[in-house]
């Protein structure tokens, strides 16, 4: 029923939220995020954040590999290009919910109105994070196209494992958003300096996700941490789907994976299974963390705190 229906005291007005309400809230948050974050009104800003930044990062890393690696073969270059292109999407997904908390609270001063609107804050942040993820995906796509045009990246559409790519995306994006929700939980408790947290956290994730180098080069504890990280499996799944038979970030000589399983690299089924498991655990932990943070924020009066931005 419509939210405004019923007179004063009509109990129908206070019925619980249904699935349709939750979907509406998420969709509106996605639209809001798209309108606010995409900076359509300022094409230069949009280009910088969405296109130039990821493309520059990718070019930088590729050049570094070419210079440092010297004789690095085409497959190593492809490994780096795909990893760094995906990174734009990952960073957007990680940062989206956290920046939404900070922007809505500090800059737009709307967080208190959103929080008391009847919509669930978690759903709103997933919607806002989703819009950033979409924008990040655009950056990733552009970066890959640039790599095809300028860096000689070869992707054979006929050879792409489309089902694996779809499955990796479906299973991989929720935990990416969940990590962003976890970061938002932290930002809900902190102040303005937390604008830097998403970048700092992304930097740390860069190390343990097998994005530009195999996990095997890391010390064993970090390598183990990387194997528990759903982003590692997501990146590995997407790589494997786009360039079947290409180098893997997970296995290989001297790797923890090979030492434990005796196999050179995980196959598609193992990748998806590990992605599902690590993703589910990450999502549950992030949701619990956010619920606790939300409760504490309400207790401490942090939901409408502004610190002078």
């Amino acid at each position: 029923m419509a939210v405004t229906a019923g007179g004063i005291g009509d109990s129908r007005r206070v019925e619980g939220l249904g699935l349709a309400d939750t979907a509406r809230h998420a969709w509106a948050a996605l639209l809001l995020g798209w309108r606010v974050e995409s900076n359509w009104a300022d094409p230069v800003l949009f280009a910088i954040y969405t296109v130039i930044r990821p493309v520059s990062s990718m070019l930088l890393l590729t050049m570094m590999v070419a210079i440092v690696g010297g004789s690095a073969d085409a497959s190593s270059r492809t490994f780096v290009i795909l990893g760094s292109a995906l990174w734009a999407m990952l960073v957007s997904g990680l940062a989206g919910p956290a920046w939404s908390v900070l922007e809505d609270r500090e800059r737009y001063r709307t967080l208190k109105y959103l929080y008391t609107s009847g919509a669930t804050l978690l759903v709103l942040l997933v919607g806002r994070g989703g819009s950033r993820l979409l924008i990040g995906a655009m950056g990733s796509l552009v970066a890959i196209l640039v790599a095809v045009a300028l860096l000689g990246l070869r992707i054979d559409p006929a050879a792409v494992d489309w089902p694996l790519l779809l499955a990796a995306m479906l299973l991989g994006l929720p935990p990416v958003l969940a990590l962003g929700i976890g970061l938002a939980a932290v930002c809900l408790q902190t102040r303005q300096e937390s604008w830097n947290y998403p970048d700092a956290f992304s930097g740390a994730m860069f190390l343990v996700s097998g994005v530009v180098f195999p996990l095997a080069v890391l010390p064993r504890p970090l390598e183990a941490l990387g194997l528990l990280n759903p982003v590692t499996w997501w990146v590995a799944g997407v790589r494997r789907a786009i360039i079947p038979g290409g180098p893997s970030s997970i296995g290989g000589a001297g790797s923890l994976w090979t030492a434990v399983t005796g196999t050179d690299a995980p196959g598609p089924a193992v990748i998806l299974g590990a992605l599902f498991l690590t993703g589910a655990v990450t999502t549950l932990v992030a949701t619990a963390l956010f619920r606790g943070s939300e409760r504490r924020a309400r207790d401490q009066g942090l939901l409408d705190r502004t610190t002078g931005s």
């Binding site: 419509a2 939210v3 405004t4 939220l17 309400d21 509406r24 809230h25 969709w27 509106a28 948050a29 639209l31 809001l32 109105y113 959103l114 609107s117 009847g118 919509a119 709103l124």
Partner: peptide, 10 residues
Amino acid sequence: WMFSQFYGLG
């Protein structure tokens, strides 16, 4: 309108 959606209006 965005807020109307968060308030649950169609």
